[in-house]
Simulated scan of single mutants.
Amino acid sequence: MACNVSVVHQAMASAVAQPNKAPPQLPCAHLSSSSNSKPKPFKLLRSSQSSFASTFSPSRPQTLIPSRSSKAPNFLVVGCGKVEPLRIMISGAPASGKGTQCQLITQKYGLVHVAAGDLLRAEIASGSENGRCAREYMEQGKLVPDEIVVMMVKDRLLQPDSQEKGWLLDGYPRSSSQAIALKELGFKPDLFILLEVTEDILVERVVGRRLDPITGKIYHLKYSPPETQEIASRLTQRFDDTEEKVKLRLHTHHQNVKAVLSMYEDITVKINGSLAKEDVFAEIDSALSRLVEKRKSTSESLAA
C-alpha cells in the first residue's frame, strides 16, 4: 500500500519545531493491505537511481515504492566497530625478566606500562606516609597492604593514555585479595603472562642487578654490565636486592602465585623465563599476535 509522504513531512516538521519532545510515530511505519498480511520491508534503490533522500520534496505528495529488482542492492557497508585496546598482565618472581619483556612488548604493541613496583618506589621516594609504611613491609620481604597499592594501580589504569592505548600491568596482582580487588573495580585482563624461572637463577639475577639513577636503566654486573666506567661509578643497588631479602620475596611469591593463577586460569600463558630474552619475547609475541588477530576478526564481523 502507498504511503503519503506529505503526512510524513508534517510529522517531521512538528518534531523540528519541538526538539525536546519524543519523535512521533510516523503513519507509514507498517505498510500492509490488511491487518492479517505481513509488512514488506523496503529495499534501498541503487545509487545510480533516484533515491527518496535526493528527490523528496515537501511541496507535493510522493509514494514510496518497494524495489522490484531481483538482485540485492550493491551497497558498501561501513562498519562502526572499533578494536578494543589490549589489557595484559605479566607476572613472575623478582628478576624473572618482567621489566625486559615489558619494554619489548610496549615497543611493539604501544601499551602503557604500569609497574606496581615503580608506583610503590615513587611513593617511597616522595617520603609520604604511605611510602614509609610500604618501605617497612618491603624491607621485611612482605607484600605491601592492598589498601595502599590497589588505589595507586586503579588511578594509573584509569588515566586517559591507559584507556586509549591499552595497558600492560607489570607484577600485579600478587595475591588473591589484590586480584579480587581489581576484578571488583572492573579491571579484567585479556591475557595473563607468567614467566617461570628457577630459584638459583633468580637469586643470581637479583644480587647482580644495578640501577642507573640518572637514566633509570637497569644493568647487571655479569649479564649486562655498564658501557662506561662513568656509568659504573654511579650505579646503585636497590635496598631490597640482597640475597637475604630476595629469598624472602621469593618465598612470599611462591605462596601467593597459585592463588592468583586460579583467578586467571583460562587466560594464562606460561613462558620459560630462563631462555634468552629474544626467545622469551618470541613466545609472548606469538600469544599477543593471536589475540590481536582474533580481536580484529571479531570487530570486522560485528561491523559487517
Rank of each mutant, 00 (worst) to 15 (best):
residue 170 D to P: 05
residue 85 P to Q: 05
residue 169 L to K: 08
residue 113 H to L: 09
residue 70 S to R: 12
residue 33 S to C: 10
residue 226 P to W: 06
residue 241 D to G: 10
residue 47 S to I: 11
residue 240 D to M: 04
residue 31 L to N: 12
residue 129 E to H: 12
residue 72 A to E: 01
residue 188 K to S: 14
residue 96 S to D: 07
residue 303 A to Y: 02
residue 120 L to I: 15
residue 126 S to D: 12
residue 295 R to K: 15
residue 261 L to G: 09
residue 102 C to Y: 02
residue 303 A to Q: 15
residue 11 A to P: 00
residue 277 K to G: 00
residue 227 E to Y: 01
residue 101 Q to G: 03
residue 20 N to F: 11
residue 110 G to I: 07
residue 198 T to G: 12
residue 53 A to L: 15
residue 177 S to F: 04
residue 39 P to F: 07
residue 47 S to C: 05
residue 244 E to A: 13
residue 187 F to Y: 09
residue 91 S to H: 09
residue 41 P to N: 05
residue 281 F to C: 01
residue 187 F to T: 03
residue 87 R to T: 01
residue 151 M to L: 12
residue 276 A to H: 11
residue 301 S to Y: 10
residue 177 S to I: 10
residue 267 I to P: 07
residue 255 Q to V: 03
residue 184 E to T: 08
residue 303 A to W: 06
residue 283 E to K: 12
residue 203 V to G: 09
residue 266 D to P: 02
residue 160 P to L: 08
residue 94 P to M: 06
residue 254 H to C: 01
residue 100 T to A: 08
residue 93 A to V: 07
residue 219 Y to C: 03
residue 95 A to W: 08
residue 88 I to M: 03
residue 80 C to L: 14
residue 182 L to V: 00
residue 253 H to V: 00
residue 80 C to A: 14
residue 141 G to R: 05
residue 275 L to G: 01
residue 5 V to Q: 09
residue 82 K to T: 13
residue 175 S to R: 10
residue 162 S to N: 03
residue 106 T to G: 04
residue 150 V to K: 10
residue 170 D to L: 03
residue 66 P to Q: 04
residue 256 N to Y: 08
residue 35 S to P: 02
residue 159 Q to T: 14
residue 101 Q to I: 02
residue 248 L to F: 05
residue 118 D to L: 05
residue 245 K to D: 00
residue 5 V to E: 04
residue 299 S to R: 15
residue 145 P to I: 04
residue 93 A to W: 09
residue 205 R to V: 05
residue 204 E to A: 14
residue 43 K to N: 01
residue 293 E to H: 04
residue 110 G to N: 05
residue 277 K to Y: 06
residue 294 K to H: 07
residue 205 R to E: 05
residue 41 P to L: 08
residue 264 Y to T: 00
residue 220 H to Q: 01
residue 275 L to H: 11
residue 284 I to A: 07
residue 155 D to P: 02
residue 249 R to F: 10
residue 29 A to V: 12
residue 171 G to D: 11
residue 20 N to Q: 14
residue 212 D to C: 01
residue 239 F to D: 13
residue 70 S to F: 08
residue 236 T to L: 14
residue 95 A to H: 09
residue 131 G to A: 06
residue 191 L to I: 15
residue 32 S to I: 06
residue 10 Q to T: 13
residue 218 I to E: 06
residue 128 S to C: 09
residue 68 R to A: 14
residue 179 A to F: 05
residue 247 K to M: 13
residue 270 K to I: 12
residue 164 E to L: 08
residue 53 A to F: 13
residue 110 G to Y: 02
residue 265 E to R: 12
residue 130 N to T: 04
residue 19 P to R: 03
residue 147 E to A: 13
residue 199 E to F: 07
residue 93 A to N: 07
residue 163 Q to D: 00
residue 219 Y to H: 07
residue 64 L to E: 08
residue 257 V to W: 00
residue 2 A to T: 10
residue 106 T to C: 15
residue 278 E to L: 05
residue 7 V to L: 14
residue 293 E to V: 09
residue 179 A to T: 06
